[in-house]
Design a protein around this nucleic acid. Structure first.
Length: 152
DNA sequence: GCCAACGTTGGC
DNA sequence: GCCAACGTTGGC
């Protein structure tokens, strides 16, 4: 899959890391992504400054809760080398890292979240990767036009 | 808690 | 390389 440059969406379960956590931290390494497609988006697609929609999943009201931006080039996810981390990958070495990440920085929290329910109803968003059948990617690209519908 | 839709793993 | 079994995601 050729990564589409420019605009992105990341998912997070708010019980594990929410937009409020990001607001407080200002910037965070997006650790723990263990899916090759998502990794490729971060490693090969994301560039510093790219806008990112921040999506809350597995919660009472799933939806886009804020906007962030890419805040670094891709670099190896340090948790893959840490045997104590839940994201430890014994196959990874510092010479040959498997997993890469970028830093994500807070931009803003939306006054009202754009709920998944609304996204589904909006004909302008019907082709969003987020809505494609069975899409469980935690990092995905978003078209500029789709991005502008959500972050107007 | 259920279940559909995947991705990954491992036997062959 | 195939494919069944298994694990995970995430909406509902």
């Amino acid at each position: 899959m050729k990564p589409e440059p420019g605009h992105w969406l990341v998912k997070s379960e708010p019980t594990s890391y929410s937009i409020d956590n990001l607001k407080k931290d200002k910037k965070t390494p997006w650790t723990g992504v263990r899916n090759y497609t998502a990794r490729n988006f971060m490693r090969d697609g994301m560039r510093p400054g790219d806008p990112v929609l921040f999506y809350h999943s597995s919660c009472p009201v799933p939806g886009v809760y804020g906007v962030a931006k890419v805040a670094s080039e891709a670099y190896p996810d340090p948790t893959q080398f840490d045997p104590k981390s839940p994201y430890y990958d014994p196959k990874a070495t510092k010479e040959k890292p498997i997993w890469f990440l970028v830093d994500i920085a807070f931009v803003k929290k939306l006054a009202q979240p754009i709920r998944l329910e609304q996204i589904k109803k909006d004909m302008r968003l019907k082709d969003m990767t987020l809505l494609q059948r069975g899409n469980r990617l935690s990092v995905m690209s978003v078209n500029l036009s789709e991005f502008r519908v959500i972050d107007y």
